[in-house]
């Protein structure tokens, strides 16, 4: 299983995209290899989320982007679980006769969440970056492609604008991550407000 997940993080994103196109678009012809499909006009807003071909066009890019992140988080949860399962409170939970499910999912998994949230937050950021690759592979005229062209053309103002926009997004993501910490870990909660009572 972990060897399978290693394949997941060893395949470069662009290669996954190319392979998916080769299999599902060129060989099987099930899904489109580029573009965004048909769009519907809703007032002044055109969207591809209301058409079948629009959804079909999303499938391959979504898998391309998601596969790497998925395997990465899978490996992270595994290594964190291995760490947590060695702790005293897990041993004590077992000694109290709690069921395997309660120990593994209730007690252990929740304790792996803090690092998992951290990394997932960072991964959200890299999804934005990897969109550059996905947009290139699937020929989507998105902001990632714009950035790529600005790098190739040394268009410093566009590069800077892109980075500022991305940086702002990262700040928002980090804020969300910090808020999630507080939800998950009570130790952080009491540090902020009233100090932990004796």
């Amino acid at each position: 299983m972990m060897t399978v997940s290693l394949i997941g993080i060893s395949l470069p994103t662009f290669l996954i995209g190319i392979l998916l196109i080769l299999v599902f678009a060129v060989m099987l012809g099930w899904l489109p290899s580029f573009g965004r499909g048909d769009v519907v006009k809703l007032g002044g807003w055109s969207t591809g989320f209301l058409t079948v071909s629009g959804w079909k066009a999303v499938i391959l890019p979504a898998i391309t982007l998601g596969l790497f992140q998925m395997t990465l988080i899978m490996r992270l949860v595994r290594s964190e679980m291995l760490e947590v399962l060695r702790t005293d409170y897990i041993k004590f939970a077992r000694a109290r006769g709690l069921s395997n499910r309660a120990v593994n999912f209730g007690h252990a998994l929740k304790n792996t969440m803090v690092p998992v949230i951290t990394i997932t937050g960072l991964q959200l950021g890299s999804i934005i970056a990897f969109a550059i690759i996905t947009e290139t592979v699937f020929s989507w005229p998105g902001v990632g492609l714009l950035f790529l062209q600005s790098v190739q053309a040394v268009d410093i103002p566009v590069m800077a604008a892109y980075l500022v926009a991305i940086g702002f997004l990262f700040v928002l993501i980090n804020l969300a991550v910090d808020i999630l910490y507080f939800v998950v870990d009570p130790r952080l909660r009491s540090m902020g407000g009233k100090a932990g009572a004796k």
């Binding site: 960072l122 990897f130 550059i132 040394v154 590069m159 980075l163 991305i166």
Partner: peptide
């Protein structure tokens, strides 16, 4: 830097070096 994905940093360095060195 850690919150910026490596690929973005690499693209940025590449872009800047193009600007400095010329195409």
């Amino acid at each position: 830097q850690l919150s910026f994905p490596a690929i973005l940093i690499a693209l940025l360095v590449d872009g800047v070096s193009r600007g400095i060195l010329g195409e």
